[in-house]
Amino acid sequence: MKKTFLYEDHLSHGAKMVDFSGWSMPINYGSQIDEHHQVRNDVGIFDVSHMSIFKISGQNAESYLRYIFSNDVKKISSKNKALYGLLLNENAGIIDDLIVYCLKGDFLIVSNCATKEKNEAWYQKHASEFDVSVDYIDNQGILAVQGPNSIKVIEKIFGGEASSLNTNECVKVDGVMIAKTGYTGEEGFEVICENKYLRKIWNSSIESGAKPIGLAARDTLRLEAGFCLYGSDMDESVNPHACGLTWTVDINDQDREFIGKQAFLNINEKDEQKMIGILLKDKGILRSGYEITHIDGKGTVLSGTFSPTLKKSIGLARVDQTNEQSGLVKIRNKELEIEFVSPRFLKKI
């Protein structure tokens, strides 16, 4: 099994390690609910070095990314910024979701670990048309410092230029890239650097008040924020409309050709199922695969969990179009009432 550079550090903090797509990763260090609250109320640090980093080099890197990525990289290419979007196939099915970072003219892609091989093949398939090189970076890792007090931690370690970044901006300080991005719905930063710097940043963050947070809390945090998880909430069988991700497909520049564009334009959003947030009114826990019914049709729970902040069960679901505000979910032969809400369960940022 693959280990991140900080494997021993996780063990020394009492982590329970699990197999996460071939990586041995910390699922929790104690109570995942305590870790969740730590990020919402204070600051936590996650080792997310299992995620894939690719570097795109060559004169045509921008043109290449404008062709393979749903969002328009032109918006960030002269700035030091990050842009979220999708890799679409020709049918507008979602190959993966990812963040493209542009820092001093260099382009980096950060994407899921389970899709690494698939994405790499896709990148290479189209690289030759643009004469760019796409390289998997295996000597770097990623730390996420997240929570309202993340600014203090980042300021202490990297100074004011990093800590005063606005959302989606990034900067390089002493060879370390710091970006104001994250997957928790809190104010926070992601730090990308060579492995040799990771331990120092990890330890300094903890000395500055951050607590180690496992992947279990990362999942409840992202779900409260309404962020989709690839493999659970989206895959190649669905298009961006059915995932609440229409906004990540930028069609403002009509001259821009990109993979999946024609298929995307041919889809009528009203004919698609839609992504909603669901709240369980009764006690119980929503789980992936549970069936939903409402007055105009049906649907399925995609991700479900217990929300530590709301103290009730929440989920993301894909349902037939409706204006109804409620429906029923089947849990072990019982039909329980659910409320249909915005997936942004916590509207903090």
Partner: peptide
Amino acid sequence: LGDIVFIE
């Protein structure tokens, strides 16, 4: 199991 949140 980890943090227990519901019992029937």
